[in-house]
């Protein structure tokens, strides 16, 4: 039995939303903004579902829209940056070394990066994309991905030195 386009879209949303939300959360730093971002990307996917489904590019399209929407929203200043709560205090024995403290630090640090810097880090080190793939998703040159990655890592070292063990060295191009 062949599923209807509607059922196929429903299945796509059910199966892929969790993964999309994870990336969106890293891009936005906020549950609700992440939901809004994925929702908007999925809506555009739905508008072109037949074409995308036939070509087998639905997920790639949705991810690309998501990254572009994020860049566009930030560029237009329509999405207020949700700053995290207080940073975990440093130098208090076990607290600082705990995974939860590191997570909070990383979240805070990501939100202090520019949208492009955060996007390249998520693409390169969360989605594990090559520089060329990241460039394609963002619609920029490989050189831009290289420079933005280097700047992002350098900035992380400054704004979140407590994360030094997370970014011990610059990424090596693939």
């Amino acid at each position: 039995m062949v599923d209807s386009p509607s059922a196929e879209f429903d299945s796509f949303v059910r199966h892929r939303s969790p993964a999309l939300l994870r990336a969106a959360y890293l891009l936005t730093g906020d549950q609700h903004l992440a939901e809004d971002l994925v929702q908007s990307a999925l809506a555009r996917t739905h508008r072109s579902w037949r074409r995308l489904h036939d070509s087998g590019n639905a997920e790639a399209y949705t991810r690309k829209v998501m990254y572009h929407l994020q860049v566009a929203w930030w560029r237009r200043g329509k999405v207020a940056e949700v700053l995290p709560g207080e940073l975990p205090e440093r130098g208090r024995g076990g607290d600082h070394s705990s995974a939860s403290a590191l997570k909070l630090s990383l979240r805070a640090a990501l939100l202090k990066l520019s949208d492009k810097q955060r996007a390249v880090l998520v693409l390169r080190f969360f989605e594990d994309r090559t520089e060329a793939e990241a460039a394609e998703v963002l619609g920029v040159s490989v050189g831009t991905v290289k420079s933005q990655t280097a700047k992002a890592l350098a900035r992380l070292r400054v704004i979140a030195p407590e994360l030094s063990d997370l970014h011990a060295a610059n990424g090596v191009a693939r």
Binding site: V13, R14, L21, R22, Y25, L26, A34, E35, Q39, L106
Partner: peptide, 18 residues
């Protein structure tokens, strides 16, 4: 670290909203 942080997001059903 990024993977751990991404675990913080709660999965939600976005079908109707989309």
């Amino acid at each position: 670290g990024l993977a751990d942080l991404a675990d913080d997001v709660n999965p939600v059903d976005l079908r109707d909203r989309a």
